[in-house]
Nucleic acid binder design. Structure first.
Lengths: 334, 334
DNA sequence: TCAGCTTATGAAATCGATTTCATGTGTGAT
DNA sequence: ATCACACATGAAATCGATTTCATAAGCTGA
């Protein structure tokens, strides 16, 4: 069933059918009614491929995430999908698994499908020291590129999270509860968002005249075992912290588990504050207090930036949403 | 950059360039070398849209899941994506969120993009009493349809999990540990997979002459709170079970939390066995023993069934993979 | 009633690759 | 030397929608 079949049945030209579908020009009401009835009777759906071919691009947004099994990416990708749908776009999802070749391959795949825009969350766009080859690759595609992160030398747009504000909120909250020995863990400093958090963490120590204990910053993978390892190292210190800031929920859950295993109570013996506020924070005991993001706003912002670019308008180069504090049960006064 | 540009530069016809790209016919080695060098120098990628238009269908498999934020669906969709890529197909993902209208809309969207096949996991294909309208909708698309579940009246193929075997394994394991008062919870009986588990659960009671306590089957949503509620109900019974089988990890985590809150030790006071073996089973204390699936095989089977159908071959109407037991720390001898 | 407009519509080109069909070239057999 | 056949290649049609351009029909006002 194509517009030609419909045109024949309605005794009009394919052009007229097309005009009814796209609403690009007026068609006599009786004809329109007839065409619409034939379309619905035959359950006709216009061929998106043919539409894309003539339009030069498809109504697809390529979405490249590090790993959808990570609840943070899952939550964000769902919001992107919903926002895209509202604008009549679809999402083509790929997982990069921190594998550079998959990342490159995904870009090419999006290009082959003539994606209108590409959104990337995680992997090489998060590196503090960007890979120039990857930036060149992205630039060569000539497809609008949007990310929560930044890649130097790349013609891209950022819609992300204010990382410094995350630490401000967490730090001030813990300080208000009386904590002075505060640790930061569960990420890699070579990742820009983590580096920015670390920078702010140091800055705040200076601001309040709190001496810095270099052992209080512990690097690890962003997962359960990373959290376990960091917490074990922190607990082994001669003067252990009274509060810890985890950079991801996944690592926070590991840290909580390690604390429990060491016989410590959270928040009785040590306070724990996390980032991301995924469902993981609800399934632990105690539930995890943490930095929360407006996922709908973040996903919506990424998508609307992408669509603005598709429409040849100029969105802000950079935008950062303000995080909030979601107080649950894992922090206490000292 | 199109095949015409390349043809002009190589002083050949577009047809020859196409033959090099698709390998559909022999081209003189020198010409082929020249064409390839021009393609790579210009970073050329064939327009997948044009290829799809002439081919009548795209190399896209539509993947419809209930909610990617559920770790079970995330794990499975990742495997589908990997398997699809191996066959040079891409996945277009949609979340249905148990909303019938989104489910219908997703089918239409896949049809508009001329997906070669559709794979659905969860939602209406899991209903014990299928929706005939949905079956009609699927049939009308004339696109191969594959699912882990079954929908009566629908021309579809099933590649799923042997649900009865799941219960066999869990039940036998608990029986071997000495348990006789075994509960089943964390799902809805109107969902076929859950119903099949429940049926087998009853059957096994008959087989071993164990009296059935109807309060030992507790229905709930497949999430944390569902698990909490079920466990609270089970613990309030005059004769509470010594072991419980959860139908999903998410509910199991809730049940564990509720047991802890009630001051019970797992597995000291009550044994807990789960299904899915997602990463959630690793982040609880104790880690959860449970029924495990070979996700790679399951995802691969769904995709290869789909691709077999795309290639006009006939795969098995139904196939079920055998689950296994993954013993961790949440079950003990009575 | 007719010039001058607006409005509705169809014919045909277009997007970029694939594929069929026809043709020209080269090879080997007789 | 000639015929037959394999092989490489180009011209042109094709997929299904959109869009431009031209034209016919309908309307307005002098």
């Amino acid at each position: 069933m194509t517009i030609y079949d419909i045109a024949r049945e309605a005794k009009v030209s394919p052009a007229t059918v097309s005009r009814v579908i796209s609403g690009s020009a007026k068609v006599k009401p009786e004809k329109e009614k007839l065409i619409r009835s034939i379309m619905s009777r035959n359950n006709f759906h216009p061929n998106a491929i043919a539409q894309s071919l003539i339009g030069g691009q498809s109504k697809i947004i390529g979405l490249l995430v590090a790993d959808i099994r990570n609840p943070f990416y899952a939550a964000l990708s769902v919001e992107c999908e919903i926002a895209a749908k509202r604008a009549d776009y679809r999402v083509m999802l790929r997982n990069a698994f921190n594998d550079d070749s998959i990342e490159d391959d995904s870009l090419d795949m999006f290009a082959e499908h003539r994606a209108g825009a590409i959104i990337q969350i995680g992997c090489r766009v998060d590196d503090l020291v960007g890979d120039p080859a990857y930036a060149t690759h992205i630039n060569s595609l000539d497809i609008p590129f949007v990310s929560t992160g930044t890649l130097d030398g790349c013609n891209m747009y950022t819609y992300g999270i204010d990382n410094a504000a995350c630490i401000d909120i967490a730090f001030e909250y813990l300080r208000g509860l009386g904590h002075r020995r505060i640790a930061l863990f569960g990420g890699r400093l070579r990742v820009r968002s983590t580096y920015e958090k670390w920078t702010r963490y140091i800055y705040l120590h200076g601001k309040y005249g709190i001496p810095i204990n270099t052992s209080y910053v512990q690097e690890s993978d962003y997962d359960f075992n990373g959290g376990v390892e960091c917490m074990n190292r922190l607990l082994a210190l001669p003067e252990r912290p009274t509060a810890v800031i985890a950079i991801s929920d996944h690592a926070a859950v590991g840290a909580l588990s390690a604390a429990h295993k060491a016989g410590l109570s959270v928040p009785g013996d040590i306070s724990l504050i996390s980032h991301d506020n995924t469902f993981l924070t609800e399934i632990t005991t105690p539930r995890l207090t943490g930095i929360d993001y407006d996922y709908e706003k973040l996903g919506g912002g990424l998508v609307s930036t992408a669509i603005t670019l598709i429409n040849k308008k100029e969105p802000p180069r950079e935008a950062f949403i303000a995080p909030t504090l979601n107080i649950k049960d894992s922090c206490a006064k000292i």
